[in-house]
């Protein structure tokens, strides 16, 4: 096995990641191979230095900043909360309006007696002459005015005389 093939094992050995059998095999190789022995020593030293360098604590303001941001986020109402905050009053107002409208709705008025209006129409036509538009409009207008003729006079029954 060439030294290049030992490198991976040496790197694991330097970090104490090999089992007893594998570690013993690496130690045998290291006792015979100067470059691999130097590599193992370098790796151990660099791992120690790496731990030392990264063990330096972070400044306390970084921790405080994170805590502050998290607590501020938690203090905000959630989106679902915001939706319900709007939805509840709107739904309540809509329900109230519906109740009021239902309570105040007047009783249905009886529909005007159409046969009676049709009976009036010839009287109007006879008063206005041959204007056919009035013949059509007269019954509608008569319904709107609830019992008065287009001329505002009380309708009269056609004379039987």
């Amino acid at each position: 096995m060439s030294c290049a093939m030992w490198e991976e094992r040496v790197a694991l050995y330097a970090g104490a990641d090999l089992g007893t059998v594998e570690a013993a095999a690496v130690e045998r190789h290291l006792s015979e191979c100067v470059p691999c022995s130097a590599l193992a020593a370098d790796l151990r030293l660099e791992l120690d230095e790496l731990r030392e360098v990264h063990a330096e604590p972070l400044a306390s303001e970084h921790y405080a900043a994170v805590r502050g941001r998290v607590l501020a986020q938690l203090a905000k109402p959630s989106r679902r909360g915001v939706v319900w905050a709007w939805a509840v009053p709107v739904l309540a107002a809509a329900a109230a309006v519906l109740v009021v409208v239902t309570m105040r709705k007047p009783a249905a008025r009886p529909a005007p007696e159409l046969p009676r209006l049709v009976a009036i129409a010839p009287a109007v036509e006879s008063e206005r002459g041959s204007d056919r538009s009035l013949t059509v409009a007269a019954p509608i207008e008569a319904v709107r005015r609830a019992g008065t003729t287009p001329s505002g006079r009380t309708p009269t029954r056609p004379s039987l005389r």
Partner: peptide, 28 residues
Amino acid sequence: HERLVLGTAYRLAGNFEDAQDASQEVFL
């Protein structure tokens, strides 16, 4: 747990801005 979270995030991200963003998300 902030040393675990922010320390790990800082070493992974390599800068405080990303580390703080990540830590905030982890705690949320």
